[in-house]
């Protein structure tokens, strides 16, 4: 599997994603500057976290107009893999590759902490290796991660098995106490129809090495590596 990390002005998890690919997973990876018109030949496109364009208008709203995004959309529409993490997820929403929108966290504060996740969909290229009832300990770090969509969309996401991750308690229960930001249905990550595009608020790249207090995020990279090799 070969990956690239798209660098927008204001991306700040680009180095972290590159590091996890290159040093932890030992996979080929390169950076792509947002002003480029074409992606290199890669299997996986990573849209990293950060504050693209300062998030001054609306998170991800300007980044979607970056020249590279046209090719990212083409890449996605041709069925190849795209993962958007945190701000990358917000960009995927703005660009229409995923449905819904982000609201400010219900606490109205930025939140950075470890939370618990479970994979709802366990058959996608991103989640294949996750065991049933496996609870993942992965950090979040965002001010706008309160996922919102209308009732029809939510129903559709549920029916089509497109909810990738939900916030859960340590023991795996979906409840309000486990929801850090007010997201609809405790949603932490969703897939597109073809299930080749994943957007998620938690940062698996921050939880892929034991020294960083959790390596539960690694299973996502391993799923991808197994599926795309």
């Amino acid at each position: 599997m070969k990956a690239c990390v798209v660098v927008f002005p204001g991306s700040n998890c680009d180095h972290d994603c590159w590091h996890v690919m290159h040093d932890v997973m030992r996979l080929p990876v390169e950076y792509v500057w947002h002003k480029q018109n074409a992606l290199p030949k890669v299997d996986l496109v990573i849209l990293p976290g950060g504050f693209s364009y300062g998030d001054y208008l609306r998170t991800g709203a300007i980044a979607r107009f970056s020249p590279i995004m046209q090719d990212v959309v083409r890449h996605a529409n041709s069925g190849r893999a795209v993962i958007g993490i945190c701000n990358g997820f917000q960009i995927l929403l703005e660009s229409g590759l995923l449905p819904g929108a982000m609201l400010r966290n219900d606490s109205l504060r930025f939140i950075c902490k470890h939370i618990y996740l479970k994979a709802v969909n366990r058959s996608s290229i991103f989640t294949k290796n996750i065991a049933a009832n496996q609870v993942l300990n992965i950090p979040i770090a965002h001010g706008e991660g309160n996922y919102f969509c209308d009732a029809d969309t939510l129903k559709c996401l549920e029916q089509e098995d497109r909810i990738a991750f939900q916030y859960v308690s340590e023991s795996g229960q979906v409840n309000m106490d486990a929801n850090p930001n007010g997201s609809a249905a405790n949603i932490a990550g969703i897939l597109n129809e073809k299930k080749n595009v994943l957007g998620m608020m938690p940062h698996p790249e921050r939880a892929s090495e034991a020294i960083l207090n959790s390596k539960d995020g690694r299973v996502i990279w391993e799923s991808l590596a197994a599926a795309l090799n």
Binding site: N12, D16, H19, F110, I111, C112, K113, R206, L212, N213
Partner: peptide, 16 residues
């Protein structure tokens, strides 16, 4: 206080 700060970006923070 510290949960409002991103204290993990750059993935070098060993001690929370």
């Amino acid at each position: 206080i510290y949960e409002q700060y991103d204290h993990m970006v750059r993935t070098d923070t060993i001690f929370l």
